[in-house]
């Protein structure tokens, strides 16, 4: 009953309370390491990235071409049926110009994340990646882009084997 309550509980601390030791704290650094199996579908996806190609899975039921690939269709709940190579070109569906890192450290040069719908996959099938070789102010939703790959000897079977996507000139 908000009108009847005069004193609300909860005590706000300031950074000085901590620095000057007015309240006690305990610190711990969690160290954990994981090694994730890429699995069947993404295992092949990564192998093809190492080869400089993007691959998807086609579902015989709904006839969608699924990217990232999966061995089962979440809609039909049946196994997907075949591997399909898709293009290394696509369209910017949405993007951001990001000036902070994951730990909120500020960046001078912004990161340019985007959802890119890939040619050859079903409409709306996009992946998260980065844009490059473009001025942030020039990026537009609907812009045509192409993958820029690392050189074959630098590739390791990872999503970062594509360095970024750059605008297609005249696209």
């Amino acid at each position: 009953m908000t009108v009847k309550i005069k004193e609300w509980p909860g005590t706000a601390l300031s950074s000085r309370d901590i620095e000057e030791g007015r309240v006690l704290t305990v610190r711990h650094k969690l160290r954990a390491e994981y090694e994730w199996d890429a699995g069947v579908a993404i295992g092949r996806y990564l192998r093809e990235l190492k080869n400089g190609r993007l691959i998807a899975r086609r579902c015989g039921g709904c006839e969608r071409t699924l990217l990232p690939p999966r061995m089962f269709c979440e809609e039909c709940f049946t196994p997907t049926s075949e591997w399909v190579y898709v293009g290394a070109t696509g369209t910017v569906n949405t993007f951001s110009i990001c000036y902070v890192r994951w730990d909120v450290v500020r960046l001078k040069e912004p990161l340019l994340p985007a959802v890119i719908t890939v040619d050859g996959a079903s409409p709306g099938m996009g992946i998260l990646h980065l844009l490059g070789e473009v001025r942030p102010d020039d990026i537009r939703v609907g812009m045509r882009v192409q993958a820029v790959w690392k050189s074959p000897d630098e590739r390791e079977g990872a999503i970062t084997d594509i360095k970024y996507w750059k605008p297609i000139q005249g696209g």
Binding site: W36, I42, S96, V100, R101, V104, P113, L128, I159, T160
Partner: peptide, 16 residues
């Protein structure tokens, strides 16, 4: 596997 190596942060999904 397919996203974290790109260095994402939570703001990305909201901004996108």
């Amino acid at each position: 596997i397919t996203e974290r190596p790109l260095g994402p942060n939570l703001l990305w999904i909201f901004a996108l």
